[in-house]
Amino acid sequence: MFDSVGWGEILVIVVAGLFILGPERLPSAAAWLGKTIRQVREYATGAQTKLRDEMGPEFEELRKPLQDLQSLRNFNPRTAVRRTLFDGDADPLGLNALKNNGNGTNGTNGTNGASTPPAAPPASRPVERLAPDERPPIDPDAT
């Protein structure tokens, strides 16, 4: 019930209740509120139990679509797009291969701690390295 209400909100409600009701009526109001919430929970639990007893196994069939709707409440569009585009691939861009080089040593050769060079790019497209102060070429038609 208090999933979306934090301690800060509860503190604000208590302080507002203290100002509105006063210190002499606040304890009785809190007791009444607690008793009412407990009674509503008991009614809901009783109704659910009675419905489950009357419907039998059909109750679970009715409950499954409701659980599916509740799962939509936690829907994250980023996760859905990532899952759709990459089909659950944990490393879609191959970044782990660059870090680990496939030998389990996380980029080191294990003898002196020097890192191994990255894997060579595919032979179909040579890579041209730029000098440290050289600007990359600009294609005006591409922009």
Rank of each mutant, 00 (worst) to 15 (best):
M1I: 05
M1T: 12
F2S: 13
F2K: 05
S4Q: 09
V5L: 09
V5I: 15
G6Q: 11
G8D: 09
G8S: 01
E9K: 08
I10L: 15
V12C: 09
I13R: 06
V14L: 14
F19N: 11
F19S: 14
I20D: 09
P23Q: 02
P23E: 01
R25H: 05
L26H: 07
L26D: 01
P27D: 15
P27Q: 13
P27W: 01
P27F: 09
S28W: 00
L33I: 14
G34C: 07
T36Q: 11
R38L: 01
R38W: 03
V40N: 08
V40E: 06
A44W: 03
A47L: 12
T49W: 08
T49R: 00
K50E: 02
R52T: 05
D53C: 02
D53K: 01
M55V: 03
M55R: 08
G56R: 00
G56P: 05
P57K: 10
E58M: 08
E61V: 15
L62A: 07
K64A: 03
P65Y: 11
Q67W: 06
Q70S: 12
S71P: 09
L72M: 03
L72R: 01
L72T: 08
R73G: 04
N74F: 00
F75R: 00
F75K: 00
N76E: 07
P77T: 00
T79F: 10
A80D: 11
A80T: 11
V81L: 04
L85R: 13
F86G: 04
F86W: 01
D87M: 09
D87S: 09
L95N: 12
L95Q: 05
L98N: 07
L98G: 08
K99N: 04
K99E: 13
N101W: 04
G102R: 06
N103E: 06
N103Q: 04
T105G: 13
T105F: 13
G110D: 02
T111W: 10
N112D: 06
N112K: 03
G113T: 05
G113C: 06
A114S: 08
A114H: 02
A114F: 08
T116Q: 12
P117M: 04
P118S: 05
A120Y: 02
P121K: 15
P122T: 09
A123T: 07
S124C: 15
V127S: 05
E128M: 08
E128S: 12
A131H: 11
A131L: 04
D133Y: 15
R135G: 09
P136T: 01
P137D: 02
P137T: 07
I138Y: 03
D139V: 08
P140M: 14
P140N: 10
T143V: 02
